[in-house]
């Protein structure tokens, strides 16, 4: 009679910890999708060239030719970018839509106008490749590249550039109301969640090119137009300093 509550307590504790452990396990990798993604990424298909020819054999990117790394990026981010590459850019001209219904689109705010545009990414190479991919292909590729290990090689940067880049990355430009890079892209630019991609381990010229694309309107697939607003306040020097700072960061993802 006296032993029963004790046993119950022990069972509850063990069961509780087991449930906690199971719930905190990372979701298992879809092995079939990963292998299909690897097949497509390394061999290509029909008119789709292999991803690895530009993005590196392990998805590590190419610093010399400005091809971004894909290894260790969030799978949802990869899928979204491929969708946006495949989407045709908006028709020019003004179309009145009294009721905006598609909330997967990004709201754009200009004084009292909220403008809904589907995000697009203009790129001469990627647009055609992404249009040839099926939704399953995108998922497979995202699974493959998000599970690849990656280790960044910190680039040597001169002290003044590094100091200015760090100032921008840690504090932003508060006198202009500009938040720091790290406040969204994670500490040391490691990236955070599906919406905020990593900046560390990317070729610096690639980062500069992307900000230039935001400024010129060639890329506008950011959530809530956050990055567009920030890009519009960056000078050429800011871009170079911040990109150099992030190329100087060390980073290890998925490494076992």
């Amino acid at each position: 009679m006296k032993k029963l509550p004790k046993i119950l307590l022990i069972i509850t504790l063990i069961g509780g910890s087991l449930v906690y452990w199971i719930q905190n396990q990372p979701p298992p990798i879809d092995e079939a999708a990963r292998q299909a993604g690897e097949q497509l990424a390394t061999k290509g298909r029909d008119n789709i060239p292999a991803c690895t020819t530009c993005h590196g054999s392990k998805g590590e990117g190419n610093f010399a030719a400005n091809f971004p790394r894909l290894a260790g990026l969030h799978p949802d981010y990869i899928i979204k970018q491929l969708q946006d590459y495949a989407r045709d850019p908006l028709q020019t001209g003004v179309k009145l839509e009294p009721i905006a219904r598609d909330y997967s689109k990004t709201p754009r705010i200009y004084s009292d106008l909220t403008v809904y545009t589907p995000g697009t990414r203009k790129d001469p190479i990627m647009n055609n490749i992404a249009k040839a991919l099926t939704p399953t292909d995108r998922k497979n590729l995202a699974t493959y590249f998000s599970t690849l290990p990656f280790q960044a090689t910190p680039q040597p940067v001169d002290f003044q550039t590094l100091e200015r880049g760090a100032d921008l990355a840690l504090r932003g430009k508060p006198e202009y109301g500009l938040p720091s890079c790290d406040s969204c892209h994670g500490p040391d630019g490691k990236g955070f969640g599906p919406y905020f991609p990593p900046l560390a381990g990317q070729p610096p010229q690639y980062l500069i090119d992307q900000i230039n694309k935001w400024q010129t309107g060639k890329r506008d697939n950011d959530s809530l137009a956050l990055m567009q607003n920030i890009a519009n306040q960056l000078t050429d020097g800011d871009k170079m300093n911040a990109a150099a700072y992030f190329s100087n960061r060390s980073l290890i993802v998925n490494w076992k």
Partner: peptide
């Protein structure tokens, strides 16, 4: 209520 018009306007910094 806001109009929903696709434009190429960009926002201006407020500070």
């Amino acid at each position: 209520p806001r109009l929903s018009i696709p434009t190429n306007l960009t926002t201006v910094p407020v500070v």
